[in-house]
Amino acid sequence: MQVTRPIGVFDSGIGGLTVLRSIIEKLPQYDYLYLGDNSRAPYGNRSFNTIHQYTWECVQWLFKQGCPLVILACNTASAKALRTIQQKDMLANYVDKKVLGVIRPTAEVIGDYSKSKQIGVLGTTGTIQSESYLLEIKKFFPDVEVHQQACPLWVPIIESGEYNKAGADYYVKLYIDEVLAKSAEIDTILLACTHYPLLQSKIEGHLPPLIKVVSQGQIVADSLADYLKRHTDIEENVTQTCTRRFFTTSDDTTDFDEHASVFFSSPVKSEYTSLTSDN
């Protein structure tokens, strides 16, 4: 079997596939390995320590599969685990590998989308409580005011395949109304969860027509392309055979494949991993 060194893409479930899809569209030449920790999803309402533990276990599994670079395509993991992983966990055994998140590249550009300098950020409870977007956006756009709104029921609705049904509209409108009530001048809404693009049409349907909705896939893809140009040592260590593999910690791969194919916009055939049993 041909040895590959793919770019690893991790999410607590299937939302990260929206990011992977954009990355492959931008950088199709590389090999990719996706891991969804579906058996323990969603992460959004879990504690800091639990999110860090789960994320680090998944990152180490991706390293063991040969990934020299891992993208945390999960805002909750990026908010609550990335810093500790980068500054502590990797120092002992993984100094030659890299882990990147989705919050910083988004924060670097999101202010450019807003004319009113009033942005609404929709995310999981974990992402919102971390205040990562408040802090990061302020670094790059000090004049931008950020209005956060946790949407704790959206990921369960999406992961259960209920996002296209009429019942989802109630919960979409509930959180949209709450964030808009925080400022009448919001002109940009950031979907700060990689699951949320599947609700984007419903979200836009409950917003005034002049408010822009921004998802992260293209932003992260553009940022990764720039990163690889600037870090040739990493780029040269990623194999380029256009291989794509998908893994889930759920033992029901058929269910994963059905939902994942919607997120990825093409058929997905996944493999099961227990994280601990694979070499």
Rank of each mutant, 00 (worst) to 15 (best):
124 T>H: 04
99 V>G: 07
69 L>N: 07
88 K>T: 07
68 P>F: 05
60 Q>R: 11
156 P>H: 15
117 K>D: 09
112 D>P: 05
75 N>P: 02
168 A>G: 03
147 H>C: 12
139 K>D: 12
71 I>A: 03
159 E>C: 03
167 G>D: 15
91 L>I: 06
133 Y>H: 10
61 W>S: 10
60 Q>D: 06
135 L>K: 09
152 P>L: 14
122 L>H: 13
105 P>N: 12
112 D>T: 14
57 E>Q: 15
143 D>K: 07
60 Q>A: 09
80 K>L: 15
115 K>G: 08
87 Q>D: 15
129 Q>F: 04
144 V>S: 07
138 K>T: 06
88 K>N: 11
94 Y>D: 07
162 E>S: 13
81 A>V: 12
143 D>C: 04
57 E>N: 14
81 A>T: 04
135 L>V: 10
170 Y>C: 08
95 V>D: 08
146 V>A: 01
171 Y>K: 00
152 P>S: 14
137 I>D: 01
58 C>E: 01
129 Q>W: 08
162 E>Y: 14
65 Q>W: 13
85 I>V: 10
111 G>P: 06
163 Y>E: 04
124 T>L: 14
169 D>G: 02
149 Q>K: 03
98 K>C: 11
143 D>T: 06
153 L>I: 11
60 Q>W: 11
119 I>T: 02
111 G>I: 03
129 Q>C: 09
102 V>S: 02
102 V>A: 01
118 Q>Y: 11
95 V>N: 08
107 A>W: 00
104 R>M: 08
86 Q>S: 09
84 T>D: 13
118 Q>W: 12
149 Q>A: 13
102 V>I: 05
102 V>T: 05
99 V>E: 10
160 S>F: 00
158 I>T: 01
106 T>M: 13
140 F>E: 08
125 T>P: 02
159 E>R: 10
154 W>V: 06
160 S>E: 15
160 S>G: 08
168 A>V: 08
107 A>K: 02
57 E>L: 11
59 V>Y: 00
76 T>G: 06
128 I>L: 05
118 Q>I: 12
89 D>W: 11
141 F>E: 01
79 A>M: 02
110 I>V: 13
84 T>H: 09
145 E>N: 14
132 S>M: 13
77 A>F: 10
110 I>E: 15
100 L>Q: 04
74 C>I: 09
70 V>I: 14
153 L>F: 05
116 S>L: 11
169 D>H: 10
76 T>F: 08
156 P>T: 02
85 I>G: 04
99 V>H: 12
170 Y>I: 15
156 P>R: 12
98 K>P: 01
117 K>N: 13
132 S>P: 03
105 P>Y: 05
170 Y>R: 06
68 P>Q: 11
86 Q>K: 11
146 V>Y: 07
95 V>K: 11
107 A>H: 00
117 K>H: 14
